[in-house]
Amino acid sequence: MSKPSFVLVLGLLVASSAQADLVFHQGFETCWSSALTKADFLARLRNQVDGRTACLPPQSGNQSGIAYTICNTPDGCGSGVPGCAVTVQSQDFAGDFIAGQFSAPGTASDIAVPLTTSLFGNCTINITGVTLTTTVDYLMRLDGIDGVHVEDMQTPLVDITNYSTSNNCNPVVGALIASYIPQAVTSAEENAAAAIEPGLRADTVGQSVCPLTP
């Protein structure tokens, strides 16, 4: 009978060691001592979203011969950054810890958007009554007997579901305002998602959550 090769023996030892680690990790520990509870994890989600401020950047252009600038408020977003600030408020998160999908309803602060035109002077567009949903999607791995480990996080999504608008602008610029509002909403969603991502990633990725039951 031929002897097993050194490479085969080494491979078996590595596989055996990995299997032993897996058994120890998942077979003998109900929860790691450093694991967060479900309530703690959900609280971290809300804390990293609630009160975060995003920024709508200035925008300039020309429509039907009317030159315009929107959201060019000096220091509007703080730290010398011009624009229109948007602050997100979040309610409690809920979701599936195995699938790693969580969401929460919320609102955003009213947004006062200054509009300057070349022909019709200055006015303000108001976006109010903003409601939204924040969704966070994680890659989860089973961790211990009754827990999961947060391996990674996709870019969060902020979806504005409802809002109202009003303005004190000359009716002639109505078409300009109508075309800007959807852009502003999309920009607010994208910038709010970008604003909450770093804190969420730092505070939740790499954590274990346990126990999952009851």
Score class of each variant (00 low, 15 high):
171 P>H: 09
181 I>G: 01
21 D>N: 15
20 A>N: 13
57 P>A: 15
210 C>S: 00
118 S>T: 13
198 P>H: 05
155 T>P: 14
175 A>H: 13
175 A>C: 10
100 G>A: 09
167 N>E: 07
40 D>C: 08
141 R>F: 13
167 N>H: 14
116 T>G: 06
160 I>N: 03
53 T>F: 06
138 Y>G: 02
1 M>G: 13
10 L>F: 11
143 D>K: 05
13 L>P: 12
152 D>I: 08
124 T>E: 01
210 C>L: 00
171 P>I: 03
178 A>T: 15
85 A>R: 06
51 G>K: 12
122 N>W: 00
116 T>F: 08
117 T>W: 04
97 F>K: 14
11 G>H: 05
191 N>C: 04
24 F>H: 11
190 E>M: 08
178 A>G: 15
144 G>E: 09
131 T>G: 01
73 T>W: 07
83 G>Y: 05
92 D>I: 11
47 N>M: 04
93 F>C: 03
201 R>H: 12
55 C>V: 05
143 D>Y: 10
8 L>R: 15
136 V>W: 03
137 D>W: 02
50 D>I: 01
162 N>W: 07
41 F>E: 06
107 T>C: 02
83 G>I: 13
76 G>Y: 07
158 V>W: 04
87 T>S: 06
162 N>L: 07
200 L>I: 10
63 Q>M: 14
164 S>I: 07
124 T>F: 01
65 G>H: 02
111 I>T: 05
157 L>W: 09
67 A>I: 11
93 F>V: 01
10 L>E: 06
179 S>R: 12
99 A>T: 02
200 L>V: 09
18 A>C: 13
129 G>D: 14
127 I>T: 02
146 D>H: 07
115 L>R: 08
181 I>H: 06
49 V>S: 10
157 L>G: 12
115 L>N: 08
124 T>N: 00
131 T>Q: 03
124 T>Q: 04
170 N>F: 02
48 Q>S: 09
214 P>Q: 10
80 G>C: 09
33 S>C: 10
